[in-house]
Amino acid sequence: MSAYQTIVVGTDGSKSSLLAVQRAAAIAAAFEARLIIGCAFYDSEKSASETLRQDSVQVLGDETAQANLAAAKEAAEAAGAGRVEAEVRSGSPVDALMALVNEHGADLLVVGNRGINSLTGRLLGSVPAEVARQSDCDVMIVHTVN
């Protein structure tokens, strides 16, 4: 197995997503990899409700996303990651994560498991399941919720 050089992880500000950030940060520290933390946001409640994903936290507005990223970056640095970057993206979490993975040529995408075992997740899809289907890099789904 080759060393990971660029790791992407998403956050929505929830406790579950911060656990995924901490796991990604520990891996980044072990491989001395660059860690990119992304946060997707919606401009309005209407665009957020159109996603139909009740299993995910829907971040409204750029300011909320920036606050989520600041907390996640602090958690990542506390977990030992040395090279941490943070980026916001307008739109759905899946689209934002896939854009970050592709733009940065990530070797690993880390997501939490929230929604993967819910009824909504099984019927409509969940963020972790969808990024695992779309990603060309390794995907680690961290057990963050029961």
Rank of each mutant, 00 (worst) to 15 (best):
I27Y: 09
S2G: 11
D107H: 05
A106F: 01
H104I: 00
A67G: 07
T6I: 12
A78S: 13
G13K: 12
Y42G: 05
V21H: 09
E63N: 09
L52Y: 13
R83Y: 05
S14A: 09
V142D: 12
S92Y: 01
A29S: 13
V94T: 13
L124C: 01
V110G: 10
Q58M: 14
S92K: 11
G121D: 03
L119D: 04
Y4V: 03
G112M: 04
M1Q: 06
L124Q: 11
A65H: 11
A67Q: 14
V88F: 02
A81P: 01
D55S: 14
V8D: 07
P128V: 04
G10Y: 07
Q134M: 12
K46L: 14
D107S: 08
V131W: 06
N117G: 04
Q66C: 08
G105F: 07
E85P: 00
G80T: 07
D95K: 14
A48I: 01
I141S: 08
E74F: 00
P128K: 06
A28N: 10
R133N: 11
D136N: 09
S135T: 02
Q22R: 15
T144C: 10
A26L: 11
D107R: 02
H104W: 03
V21E: 06
E45D: 11
A24I: 01
E85I: 01
R114Q: 13
G125K: 07
S47P: 00
G125H: 07
Q66K: 15
G105P: 09
P128G: 06
G82L: 12
Q22H: 01
A81R: 10
K46W: 06
S16H: 14
R114Y: 00
N146V: 07
S56P: 00
A96R: 02
V21D: 07
G105M: 11
A67I: 11
A81H: 09
L109V: 05
S14L: 03
L60F: 03
L97T: 02
R122K: 15
A26R: 15
E50C: 00
D55I: 02
L19E: 14
A40G: 13
I116N: 10
T51M: 05
A99T: 13
G61P: 07
G112W: 01
V127Q: 05
Y4C: 04
G61H: 11
A99Q: 12
A106I: 04
V8S: 08
M140D: 10
L35A: 09
S90A: 13
A40R: 03
A70N: 07
V101T: 03
S92G: 15
G80S: 10
A99F: 04
D62T: 02
L18S: 05
G82P: 00
D55A: 11
A65P: 03
A67N: 13
